[in-house]
């Protein structure tokens, strides 16, 4: 199956509805929230369809390689935002930014090879899958914290829903920690070492320590509102760097480039 047109369509849908709702939200149009909910549901449906199609095509969870990871990330970003949006009547209000984030993730994924490869031995493990699932869920939660933080910063209405940002940061931190612990455990099974200062590990520590600092400052220095939101935005940028930055490293420097063509230097 060719994912190209569907991927472009899904990215365009997310970006279009996201941009419309941001404009509506900015101009205080009453219907922005309803549009965001409808757009969110459509975005989740599109991302889920792409994800399932890839799952059927390759016969394993779409977690390996930048293209597959992008599909999983977009689904998690939109899924977490949609659950929050639909579960709480007042809502978190982060769907417009979540839609834009998902669009960016899909566009980035579309730049990488969609060729299907069999999983290598090191990718065939339930531990690797759990590690990946924890990573993408953490990303989804932190993306929602980012979306909410942007809302707080732009509209300066952090006071009304101040409880959301710390909760999203906390749950994201739990899953990020879980992801790192599972990664270290699986690395031990695979290489006989729990840590080796691979760039993916160092970048994960950077993001983890940044969120740990933000959470400490929330608890002990009473950071809230715009101050907390601004640092949550910075934390998310570091998280994106930790997830995607490793792609810009030479393949010899890390074991975590999962795109076979990049790893084997196959010209595109």
């Amino acid at each position: 199956m060719s994912h190209g047109p569907w991927l472009s369509l899904s990215a365009a849908l997310c970006a279009g509805v996201g941009a419309l709702t941001i404009v509506g939200w900015w101009s205080q149009w009453d219907g922005w929230r309803r549009l965001a909910r409808v757009g969110g549901v459509l975005g989740v449906a599109a991302a889920a369809a792409l994800w399932v199609a890839r799952f059927v095509e390759v016969g394993h969870l779409p977690l390996f390689g930048t293209f597959e990871a992008g599909l999983s990330l977009a689904l998690c970003v939109l899924g977490v935002a949609a659950v929050l949006e639909l579960s709480f009547p007042d809502g978190v209000g982060g769907m417009p930014v979540a839609l834009m984030t998902a669009a960016a993730v899909l566009i980035h994924a579309g730049r990488y090879s969609r060729a299907t490869w069999a999983l290598t031995i090191s990718e065939r493990s339930v531990w690797a899958e759990l590690h990946g699932i924890a990573a993408w869920l953490a990303f989804g939660l932190f993306a929602s914290s980012f979306a909410y933080a942007v809302r707080v910063l732009v509209r300066a209405d952090g006071g009304a829903d101040a409880r959301w940002l710390p909760r999203l940061l906390h749950w994201g931190f739990v899953l990020q920690s879980t992801m790192m612990a599972l990664g270290s455990f699986y690395k031990f099974l695979l290489f006989g070492r729990t840590w080796s200062f691979d760039p993916i590990e160092s970048l994960a520590v950077v993001a983890w320590a940044s969120y740990a600092t933000i959470i400490h400052l929330r608890y002990f220095a009473g950071w809230r509102g715009e101050k907390l939101a601004a640092w949550a935005v910075l934390g998310f940028l570091l998280l994106v760097l930790s997830y995607k930055g490793v792609l810009y490293f030479p393949s010899w420097s890390t074991y975590h480039i999962l795109d076979v063509d990049l790893r084997l230097h196959i010209p595109g």
């Binding site: 160092s202 970048l203 520590v205 950077v206 320590a209 930055g245 490293f249």
Partner: peptide, 27 residues
């Protein structure tokens, strides 16, 4: 807790440096 914050930020900076180093130097 101020020391905790300073040290955690230092930890992030140090690991950021290690990641940058890994671009050009072997493991």
């Amino acid at each position: 807790f101020k020391l905790s914050v300073v040290l955690t930020v230092l930890l992030a900076l140090y690991h950021g440096l290690l990641a940058i180093w890994a671009r050009s130097s072997p493991a």
